[in-house]
Amino acid sequence: MTYVAPRQGRAIETEAKFLEAAEKLFAKNGFNNTTIDHIACAAGLHRGAFLKRFGSKYAIADILFERYCSESVCRLNETLQAMRGGEFAGFRDMLIQISVGLEMVLRKHIAANRAFNEILANRLEIEEKANNLFRHFIQVFRDGFAHFSPGEEVAKRDAIPPAQLLVVLNYNYVLEIAPSLPREHLQRHNAIVDATLSMLDSNLGVKTHN
């Protein structure tokens, strides 16, 4: 079944109720432990209406994940614009901004991320949306490095591990499974970026950042 966004008022309202219910349940109980009946009951609607609107539980998770990807890309693009506008003191300052923004987006869309992590584990495959988002993130990471290190660049293979670390540390913190990270906001993001830059420097074999 191919998803088609609703165009009429009642259909839009129905979809919004299902999405809100699914988001709350995925965040609280996870994707695997949430059924279509759970979502329909929480939305105050019928299972048949859900199936007519989405066709499957995977489809509604896909919509939620698409929202996360879209907002993440917008934030990354805003960071690039700020970089080109001279708003950052250096590459480290830019990464702090990315880390802070990443945590905010993850908190807002934790249901979508939790659902898709379970889906990927179930299917043993990589979701193309997640791949595309990470490729975009890697490019922003590399563009930032090149911007603040004129004449230098970081290869994709060297950028991937530190970028992954920045994402994973924020994700684990949001899931409350990273107890060693500082609880204080600025200290935490400084620690995450320090770890990211340390890995980057290790990959490059030189000390490039203060």
Rank of each mutant, 00 (worst) to 15 (best):
H46R: 06
F18S: 07
R67F: 09
K52C: 09
N203V: 08
I12A: 11
E78C: 08
G90L: 11
I60A: 04
A59P: 11
G90N: 15
E20L: 10
I160P: 06
A89V: 14
R183L: 03
V4A: 12
A59F: 05
Y3V: 08
L197Q: 04
E78L: 12
A195I: 00
M1E: 12
P150L: 00
F26I: 01
L25T: 05
N170G: 15
N170F: 06
G85M: 07
R67S: 13
K57N: 06
I110L: 12
V168G: 04
A22V: 08
S149P: 04
F141M: 11
K156G: 05
D194C: 06
D201P: 01
G48V: 11
F88G: 02
D194E: 12
K28F: 07
L102G: 15
A159F: 04
L181N: 02
T79A: 11
E125G: 08
Q8L: 02
F65A: 02
L204F: 03
G151E: 06
K17W: 07
H136E: 14
I177H: 04
A40S: 14
V105T: 10
G144L: 05
R67M: 10
R123C: 08
R135Q: 12
I126Q: 09
L76K: 04
D37W: 00
G90M: 06
I96L: 14
R107T: 10
I160S: 03
R135H: 14
S149G: 03
E87F: 12
L76A: 11
N77T: 10
K17P: 05
E153S: 13
E127S: 06
S99N: 05
D93F: 04
L95C: 06
I63Q: 07
E176A: 09
R135C: 14
N131T: 14
S99A: 10
Q8W: 00
D143L: 09
Y173E: 06
A61Y: 07
V167N: 08
L76S: 11
G144F: 12
T14P: 03
S70R: 10
Y171C: 09
G48K: 00
Y68T: 09
G90W: 12
R123H: 08
M199Y: 01
H136R: 12
V206D: 05
I12M: 11
E87N: 13
N113Y: 03
I126F: 11
I63S: 05
D143W: 01
S72C: 10
N113V: 12
L95S: 03
K207A: 08
V4R: 01
A42Y: 05
I110T: 06
I63W: 04
H147M: 11
I192D: 02
H209D: 02
Q187V: 05
A130G: 13
E153V: 03
I119H: 06
P150R: 00
R7W: 01
L45V: 06
E15D: 09
P182W: 00
E66H: 09
